[in-house]
Amino acid sequence: MKRHEAREKAFQTLFQLDLIDEDIEETIQERLEEVEKDQFLQELVTGVVEKRQEIDEIISANLEKWSFNRLAAVEKAVLRIATYEIKHMEDIPENVSINEAVTLAKLYGDDKSGKFVNGVLSKIIKD
């Protein structure tokens, strides 16, 4: 599986986790069993889940005139994946993480999602 496809699957899984009130471990297992075993995909999903509080704090600290709780589920999931990559996956260039996040935001969000995600992530990499 290509990394772009893995990011999209990770996005779908994390998006689903944000919307449902079920056992996280069970949901992750179900979603990951649906796709071929991909180490990058598994690292993204489990990494974001394990570091979620830290990631959310980083995102919150880089929002201007916006609160984390007001973010749409699409933007939350995309920002969490990219922030995890930027802060915890040193083998991925920051610009690649940002470009992939913007692509996902444009695909699943509204007209302004890509620009918003780009702005927040640009602030995060300057920290």
Rank of each mutant, 00 (worst) to 15 (best):
I59V: 02
S60K: 15
E64L: 14
I24C: 07
E50G: 07
K76W: 10
Y84E: 03
T83D: 03
V48H: 06
K37V: 05
E30N: 14
L32K: 13
E75P: 08
N69V: 03
N62I: 02
Q39W: 08
D23M: 03
T83I: 02
L71A: 14
R52P: 00
V45A: 08
A61S: 13
I59N: 02
T46Y: 14
S67M: 03
E30P: 00
R52W: 01
G47Y: 01
D23C: 09
Q42C: 05
V49L: 04
T83G: 07
N62H: 14
V74G: 12
N62F: 08
N69Y: 10
I59H: 03
A77F: 06
K76T: 05
V78S: 09
Q42K: 12
A77L: 10
R31A: 14
E22K: 11
N62S: 09
E30F: 09
L41A: 00
E54P: 00
I28L: 07
E30I: 04
Q39A: 11
E54F: 11
V35I: 03
V45D: 01
D56N: 15
A82H: 06
Y84R: 12
K76G: 11
E30V: 03
L71C: 12
V45I: 01
G47F: 01
V35E: 11
A77Y: 06
L79S: 07
E22F: 05
L63Y: 08
G47H: 03
E64A: 14
I81L: 13
E30C: 04
I55S: 06
T83L: 07
R80L: 04
R70A: 13
A82R: 05
V74K: 14
K65A: 15
E75D: 15
V35Y: 15
K37A: 13
T27F: 02
I58K: 14
R31K: 15
I28G: 10
E30G: 12
E54A: 14
Q42R: 12
A77S: 15
E25D: 08
T46F: 14
V78Q: 00
E22D: 04
L79C: 11
A73G: 08
E26H: 11
E36H: 09
A73H: 13
Q53W: 06
I59F: 01
V49A: 07
W66A: 14
D56K: 15
R52L: 07
R31N: 13
I28C: 09
R80C: 05
E25N: 07
L32E: 04
E36C: 11
E50Y: 13
E75L: 08
E22C: 06
R31C: 09
L63T: 02
L41E: 02
K37P: 00
T46E: 12
E43S: 13
R70I: 00
N69G: 15
K51V: 00
R31M: 12
I59R: 02
R80Y: 05
E54N: 12
E26N: 09
A73I: 02
T27S: 10
L63Q: 10
E36Q: 12
F40R: 03
G47D: 03
E33T: 01
N69E: 13
V48I: 00
A72Q: 08
I58H: 08
G47P: 01
S67I: 02
L32S: 12
E22R: 09
E54I: 03
A61P: 02
E34C: 10
T27G: 05
R80A: 10
T83R: 06
V78H: 08
K76D: 05
E43Q: 14
I81N: 05
L63P: 03
T46M: 11
V49T: 00
V45E: 02
